[in-house]
């Protein structure tokens, strides 16, 4: 007899299921491929003066090379995994078998964090190969502190992005609908944001702080590169447009709380 708490059983079961899931394997394999392409680009990089390349200068290409692709691919994978529970009616069977709704939900949150971790690790390791092969530890540095912070930013941003898929997965009733809605959200939010930013009042403020945009900022260079912070300190106009890392983190946290609670409320009260 196992004595593990049920929420932990739920998380473990989610991981056991996920590793066998072709939708996840395929998206992950596609992601490895994309990361490898970035890595190859780095391998082909040459310095302006033909001299050796500094590792510290290469990390930004590795970490920023994917744009928003990690969020889209991991999000699609997660939405598919979540949505299928409705298609196969396994989500209801899990509860029939004795998982509480809270424990089931916790299992999915565990899966969310692990998928985010796996994608970021894949990203850093695969693109990092290019950096390590081509780059030289000039000035004694393999890597700088802000690169590490950026990596954590990637992890935080991706985890946050997946909470959007959590909402679409638990708010709809199938893998197709969950995935489609997630993609629509990701595609439509920037348009909505641009529209809102036309206004100078509170609407403009909201336009700048929508969830996918906030989560994306966590994964982008300007948030973590000290050069940008320095420039902003000297240039009030730039400072007005730049959101400091700490503020972005706080914003993201607020959105995660809102999105996760919405997902829970959608799930908690629905007929399975």
């Amino acid at each position: 007899m196992s004595t593990a708490p049920l929420w932990l059983v739920a998380v473990r079961n989610e991981l056991r299921k996920a590793v066998h899931r072709r939708a996840l394997r395929l998206t992950w394999a596609g992601f490895v491929l994309v990361c490898a392409l970035v890595s190859i680009q780095i391998l082909n990089a040459e310095s302006n003066d033909g001299g050796p390349l500094a590792m510290a200068d290469l990390w930004p290409s590795a970490l920023g090379g994917l744009g928003g692709l990690a969020g889209i691919m991991a999000g699609v994978a997660f939405a598919l995994l979540l949505g299928s529970e409705w298609d196969w009616r396994t989500g209801r069977q899990n509860v029939i078998d004795g998982l509480g709704r809270g424990e089931w939900f916790t299992g999915k949150l565990g899966l969310l964090v692990v998928i985010a971790g796996a994608f970021v690790t894949t990203h850093v390791l695969t693109t990092g190969i290019g950096v390590l092969v081509v780059g030289e530890p000039l000035d004694g540095g393999w890597i700088e502190l802000w690169h590490v912070k950026w990596m954590l930013g990637l992890l935080a941003g991706l985890t946050c992005t997946l909470t959007i898929a959590l909402v679409t997965g638990l708010g709809t009733s199938g893998a197709g609908a969950a995935t489609a809605l997630f993609l629509v959200w990701i595609a439509a939010e920037p348009l909505m944001s641009a529209g809102l930013r036309e206004y100078d009042d509170w609407r403009g403020w909201i336009g700048e702080h929508l969830p996918a945009g906030t989560f994306a900022r966590l994964q982008q260079r300007p948030t973590w590169d000290p050069v940008f912070a320095e420039r902003a300190a000297a240039d009030p106009e730039l400072a007005a447009r730049m959101v400091p890392a700490s503020a972005t983190m706080l914003e993201a946290l607020v959105w995660v709380v809102i999105l996760t609670s919405s997902a829970w409320l959608l799930y908690r009260r629905r007929d399975l």
């Binding site: 004595t3 056991r16 299921k17 009616r89 209801r92 029939i96 078998d97 004795g98």
Partner: peptide, 25 residues
């Protein structure tokens, strides 16, 4: 059981039952 047999189609029968066994302790 409810209505139809509800299992993960990509897992074997045995693996499906093991998931149930863990939930039931």
């Amino acid at each position: 059981t409810l209505e139809t047999p509800n299992f993960y189609p990509y897992l074997s029968g045995e693996r499906n039952l093991r998931l149930v066994a863990r939930v039931k302790g």
